[in-house]
């Protein structure tokens, strides 16, 4: 899996690179429009993380170029602007997703994975982890061959944790992903707890488990 990061802020770029490399992606990074254009002309990427506010050009222009070159790789726009116009223009020009800064690393991974999945139609629609089988299309979960019913939130939590299985997912990241951005002003994220309790109960017979880490967040454990 090959990912290109186009980002002019060096530390932002370094964070994304570090985090994505942990997932064993092949990550390349450029920090300006010109070198980005050169790269996409030569190589094919499965996913491009594109900052649209580049010092020497607009990232949306790169999108147009990609379209012209008929490149099939997925594109996620990463922008500090969170403007509706940019979002609509970007999606119109064929971007797969729009991620406003600041974002959680867990969210970045979830978006990248989703793009990858959408792009590789022939790819696995079944996710297998431990003795758990998840059908991504029907959103059904089997543990040890037995179908267990998960409600929407439980399913979303499980998938988010599986997507970020190597890392600690903070409560804030989880809440915002599952309950939406608007939950953010809630006085604490402790309300996650009851859903988490139900989820754990349903995973009783599974070889995976959700572990709370110091009250900071959660992590998927595979035994």
């Amino acid at each position: 899996m090959k990912i290109l990061i186009v980002e002019d802020e060096p530390q932002m770029l370094e964070n994304m690179r570090q985090s994505l490399e942990k997932e064993h992606y092949n990550v390349e990074a450029v920090s300006n429009f010109k070198s980005a254009l050169e790269r996409i002309g030569v190589y094919n990427y499965d996913c491009i993380l594109l900052d649209i506010g580049l010092p020497d050009g607009n990232g949306l222009e790169l999108l147009k170029q990609l379209k012209k070159m008929n490149k099939t790789g997925g594109v996620i726009i990463v922008s500090a602007k969170d403007s509706l116009d940019d979002r609509l223009n970007g999606l119109d020009l064929g971007a797969d997703d729009y991620l406003p800064k600041p974002f959680h690393m867990a969210e970045l991974h979830a978006r990248v994975k989703a793009v990858m999945r959408r792009r590789n139609f022939e790819g696995n629609k079944i996710v297998e982890i431990g003795n758990v089988l998840i059908n991504l299309e029907s959103r059904s979960v089997q543990i040890e061959g037995e179908e267990i019913v998960f409600n929407r939130k439980e399913y979303d939590i499980l998938m988010y944790l599986i997507t970020n299985k190597t890392r600690l997912v903070t409560k804030a990241a989880l809440a915002e992903h599952v309950w939406g951005d608007h939950i953010d002003q809630a006085d604490s994220f402790d309300f996650i707890y009851s859903q988490m309790k139900n989820l754990r109960k349903k995973l009783e017979n599974a070889t995976i488990n959700v572990e709370a880490v110091y009250g900071v967040g959660y992590k998927l454990q595979i035994s």
């Binding site: 932002m12 964070n15 985090s19 600041p102 974002f103 959680h104 867990a106 890392r167 990241a173």
Partner: peptide, 20 residues
């Protein structure tokens, strides 16, 4: 507000990486 987004993003992501 726009200018604050990037440093906030960098700090949050750095700490998330540290937590991992």
């Amino acid at each position: 507000s726009h200018e604050l987004q990037t440093p906030l993003a960098i700090s949050i992501n750095k700490l998330e990486l540290l937590l991992e």
